[in-house]
Design a protein around this nucleic acid. Structure first.
Length: 203
DNA sequence: AACATGATAAACT
DNA sequence: GTTTATCATGTTC
């Protein structure tokens, strides 16, 4: 177990955009079937609870799907979309506040062979993990991981000796949320400037 | 009916 | 190499 694993207190803070920024440069790790896979987080998006039209919990919606969003921070919110993809979010804030950060891209670091196999690819290239559904597939994350804690021994985020200067962090509108009206234009997507593993925007 | 996407193919430059 | 179009596939409200 790594000593630099982020503590629960990291996730319990109430500024979700700040947490989304701080997650850049951190190392996301999964341990599944004895196989360790990990990568550096290079792109995130903040989802601001009940007042954010792009959030699944907008207007205080409670449902079977959004239940884990209202939990105390420090657990995973995994959901299924477009009939075939899984998305990983980090739930933040105190219990009752459905804030979350979507992990949109990572830079592969450990267990590249296993990731390539899960993705059915032969060679390391940005397409391995440069999108939210690509990285969940590469890390072996599916619906079973919904609600799983980031403080356990199967899924965690750890500090990594990668200094991310403020000047390296770029922000802009979130992807795929055009339906969200005014909230669609909020600059709540954060990424590391010029990193080749950041997702490609569709025009 | 819509969806916090990815893979592929075809037509560009 | 890049942009544009199309489809896959099933849960959610």
């Amino acid at each position: 177990m790594p000593e630099n694993k982020l503590p629960l207190t990291f996730y319990l803070r109430d500024d979700v955009t700040q947490i989304a920024r701080e997650l850049l440069g951190k190392r996301l790790v999964t341990l599944k079937d004895g196989v360790l896979t990990a990568g550096i987080i290079v792109e995130t998006e903040a989802y601001g609870g009940i007042t954010d039209r792009a959030s699944h919990a907008f207007n205080g919606l409670h449902s079977a799907r959004t239940r884990v969003l209202y939990s105390q921070g420090g657990i995973a919110y995994v959901y299924f979309i477009y009939g075939m993809h899984y998305m990983l979010n980090v739930v933040t804030g105190k219990e009752g506040v459905p804030d979350a950060v979507l992990i949109r891209a990572i830079e592969p670091q450990t267990g590249v062979e296993a990731m390539l196999e899960r993705r059915n690819m032969k060679k390391l290239q940005p397409a391995l993990t440069n999108g939210p559904a690509k990285l969940t597939r590469a890390l072996g994350i599916d619906l079973e991981w919904n609600g799983y804690p980031f403080t356990g021994n199967k899924l965690w985020i750890e500090d990594f000796k990668r200094e991310v200067r403020e000047s390296e962090i770029v922000s802009g509108p979130r992807i795929g949320v055009d339906y969200a009206g005014v909230d669609a234009r909020r600059p709540w997507r954060f990424w590391i400037k010029e990193n080749p593993f950041v997702s490609k925007t569709r025009s």
